[in-house]
Design a protein around this nucleic acid. Structure first.
Lengths: 204, 204
DNA sequence: ACCTGAACACCGTTCAAGT
DNA sequence: ACCTGAACACCGTTCAAGT
């Protein structure tokens, strides 16, 4: 729940670790989470063995990279819980996570896999995302803004599916998927919630 | 549009080609489209060079593998165009394609990438899928069963996103994504269209 | 006309040897 | 305590040599 028991590192080791993370972020942004770790090490100015010394595998590296970012995301989610009208809060949360999960190509897959995999360094984060979704859902349902049996797991699936869509289809397509789906989930209720452009061509 | 100009092959070459396709199908089903081609060749009883002789790259192999299957799918789509009430036809079409695109792990990505990539062996098929979706959409809209500005591209995105979801999240999650999204897209119109279980807990 | 398989390139991961 | 980089394994792809 709290910070991992980060043991003290020798000064040079910490410096290497930090540079590895910085370069990994840069490389993953450009080439996705499957980029050669070799090039990460080279850019960080260390041997490949050093990278493995700090991070036992690629997932651990991605996990460390996301830890801070995740904290910020969760805090944002918590704030939305009270700061915005329930329906809008849920919508904003979904877009925020999609944005987050689209940081690197391949990240959506890592996250999706992480929910069911206890071993994953991102497991806890995925559970947390689902939890926050559940709370936002409960709020929205409480004011009658959300219809049907939508669950946190559904929202988690949608967020990852949309992030994946960003990697493979034209830019707006992912947003349209989210907009259409959310719009179907939300009832046009007391509080207005416009996911898409203003188009109210509806009948009955 | 019609059969590719398949040149006559020497008997042994044709036999090899067929076995390669059969084994590729088996291997891809088990290990996904990223499975070692080496093992495909070995199982087919030929050298790796023979595989590359028949299929210049992995995409070509996947493409050939899907050509027949795609024909069947398109025909099904065409039939739905006239055989079922528009809303139901669209729903069935989406589930059929999701099923199709989930045949191998990684296939959804190949398909999604194929829509925008002229070079892809699956490009034409992806365009076709979008076209059929467009026609089904037009029908549904014509009877007032479909709301908003849903496009064939939206349906294509949803289908692939759902197929991808199957690869990474618990089984029903993909179906739930489709059900929730489609249910939001479809209006409760003259002709009944129940995507999910019967739950009409609604207000207004 | 087609097949073979050695050869090369590339990358993940380990570990003995260094400092 | 940490780093180095050679070494090994694995896989995609090519191509000279065979039939």
């Amino acid at each position: 729940m709290t910070e991992p028991p980060r043991r003290r590192l020798r000064a040079d080791a910490r410096r290497n670790r930090d540079r590895l993370l910085a370069e990994a972020d840069a490389v993953f942004r450009q080439e996705g989470t499957d980029a050669p770790l070799d090039s990460v090490a080279r850019r960080a100015g260390v041997a490949i063995g050093t990278l493995y010394g700090h991070f036992p595998n690629r997932r651990a590296l991605v996990g460390s990279l996301l830890r801070e970012r995740n904290q910020a995301l969760f805090q944002h989610g918590q704030e939305l819980l009270t700061s915005s009208p329930p329906a809008q809060a849920l919508i904003r949360w979904v877009y925020a996570v999609v944005e987050h999960a689209a940081a690197y190509q391949g990240l959506a897959a890592v996250l999706a896999d992480g929910l069911g995999d206890q071993e994953s360094e991102l497991h806890a984060s995925c559970v947390r995302m689902t939890d926050i979704s559940d709370q936002l859902i409960a709020n929205a349902r409480a004011v009658g803004a959300l219809r049907r049996d939508v669950t946190g797991a559904d929202i988690f699936a949608l967020m990852n599916a949309a992030a994946w869509t960003r990697e493979h289809l034209p830019l707006e397509q992912a947003d349209r998927l989210v907009a259409l789906t959310m719009d179907g989930m939300l009832t046009r209720a007391p509080n207005r919630n416009t996911t898409t452009k203003q188009d109210r061509s509806q009948n009955s």
